[in-house]
């Protein structure tokens, strides 16, 4: 496991010789056509510290066992395909560098929890998207402007954080409430509701606040901060949920008033 070899050049970062390590990955496998229950399987792969867990999974799939199945696409943390549990924490495989893990120990990789397991590291994402669709994740506005709607920099800043969401489900599937109660909307749906509730151009915030005031809405949040820790985009998820709670109690989002710098006509 800790066997060390000095190799001329890394595949990743340009620079001097970088040590390659043999890393052990223990992956929770499940083939629905063969297995009754998931089981753990070990793989040894030669990795550079700057490689990502996704590279390790690729190496296994491409060189050792082609049947290892996982989702991935962009490989740099923007598409949200490869959320998985790595050493017990929800992370994107493509954003988790080997050097940031303790490689004297095996790396445990399994599918995210709380969604139906389909095969190896793949889960059924439909329930997740179902909650997302339920909070009406689209701008509701009745006016038909000729040009853009006006929005001040401050008004835009209020919901900036929650526009970063890539719907990877790392937050929702790290939430202990969601694990035991799949009916709970979950952090991701609330984050996406937040993105519209606090958008000054939107007119549907009352509807969304009502939806989230539901039995399975924001009040189920126990403020454990798992979601904030899991978010690969660094969204302050728990804070967003708290802001939605406050908005429900207030009865409105309490948006900042416009602070536009008005330029005189003809200026």
């Amino acid at each position: 496991m800790s066997e060390v070899a000095v190799v001329e050049e890394s595949a990743g970062v340009p620079g001097g010789p970088i040590q390659a390590f043999t890393v052990t990955l223990i992956i929770r496998r499940f083939d629905p056509e063969v297995d009754a229950e998931p089981h753990w399987q070990d793989f040894d792969v030669e990795m550079y510290p700057t490689d990502r867990v996704l590279d390790a999974l690729h190496k296994i799939k491409w060189e050792q066992d082609g049947s290892l199945t996982f989702r991935r696409s962009c490989a740099h943390g923007i598409c949200g395909s490869d959320a998985m549990r790595i050493n017990g924490r929800n992370r994107l495989a493509c954003k988790t560098l080997i050097k940031d893990l303790d490689i004297s120990q095996p790396i445990y990789v399994e599918a995210i929890k709380g969604l139906p397991l389909e095969k190896d590291l793949i889960v059924d994402m439909e329930p997740f998207f179902e909650s997302y669709r339920a909070i009406q994740p689209f701008l509701i506005a009745s006016d038909k402007p000729d040009k853009e709607r006006i929005q001040s920099v401050a008004q835009r800043a209020v919901f900036d954080d929650t526009t970063k969401c890539i719907l990877c489900a790392a937050c929702t599937s790290s939430c202990p409430v969601f694990w035991t109660d799949g009916q709970y909307f979950g952090p991701a749906a609330i984050v996406n509701a937040h993105r519209f509730i606090f958008d000054s151009r939107d007119e549907g915030s009352q509807v969304r606040l009502d939806i989230l005031n539901d039995k399975e809405g924001v009040w189920r949040c126990r403020t454990t901060f798992n979601c904030s820790e899991a978010c690969p985009r660094g969204i302050e998820v728990t804070k967003a949920i708290s802001e939605v709670k406050a908005a429900i109690l207030r009865g409105n989002p309490g948006l900042p008033s416009s602070d536009l710098v008005l330029t005189p006509v003809g200026a």
Binding site: L139, I150, D199, T263
Partner: peptide, 15 residues
């Protein structure tokens, strides 16, 4: 923008 895209804004509130 009308569909809801949150563009960055100028001090006048335009895109």
């Amino acid at each position: 923008e009308n569909m809801g895209l949150p563009f960055n804004r100028t001090p006048e509130g335009k895109i």
